[in-house]
Amino acid sequence: MPSTREIRRRIRSIENTAKITKAMELVAASKMRRSQDRALAGRPYAERLSWVLADLAETMPQMDPDTLHPLLQRREVKHACIIHITPNRGLAGGLPANLNRRASALALDLGVPASMVAIGKKGRDYFRRTDVNMRATFTELGDYPEYIDILPIARVVIDDYLAHEYDQVFIVYPYFVNTMNQEPRVHQLLPVEPPEDKATQAIDYIYEPDRESVLAELLPRYVEMQIYEAILESIASEQSARMVAMRNATDAAEEVLEELTLARNKARQEQITKELLDIVGGAESMQV
């Protein structure tokens, strides 16, 4: 049986831990809400851009594959690239580990050498120890990156792709299912797979200056937008994973505190009983 003092010291330390995890939970909850709002605010743009691209893509099969825009051209895959989006910081439950596992599995499945563009420290540090060729790393995006902040990422990937550094680009990111659940997703970024037109009613647009120029302007933005969306999604996922992990930690701390408090009270009572017995025993011996 540990002494009362020892128990009291442990209680204090766990109380402090619980305060920290509680605070982290609240911070993560507020950041999660804000990043969800930001992710939602970008939806209309993404949607409209997809529509226009879907519309343009409808007549694409008739185009000569050689004159097709390079970002759309499918070529033999000799080298692939994975854009790996992970949190910068830990204490987010299993999220970073799940992402790293998914990206590793993808790199193995590809069957061709893979380069990597790592966004976030958790992924960068994990793959630094492997033989994956680290093409670029971005770890300074912060909690609320703006569209402008992700342009360099798109630039690196598009330039490399056009320079035939790699022939296929995937993006790995945590899809935000709900607050309790985020799952790693893989999505092909390049060559661009035009979205299916849901409206199906083909409209005979007038293009200005012409179809190809519009497409050439649109495709890089489509790539940028997808990266931007994946990063926002990743941040919302990270914050909610952290919030849940910290809530569990706080609950666990409170449970331990309850047990320790009980132990402390028992020990204190024992002590008092012992002291009383001593006094009674002492008084009796005086009476004789």
């Binding site: 226009v52 409209i203 647009y205 007038i206 293009y207 200005e208 200056p209 120029s213 519009v214």
Partner: peptide, 15 residues
Amino acid sequence: GEFTVLPQHAEFITT
């Protein structure tokens, strides 16, 4: 160049 869109404009996409 600068252009104006009024109601009943044809379907149109431009940069």
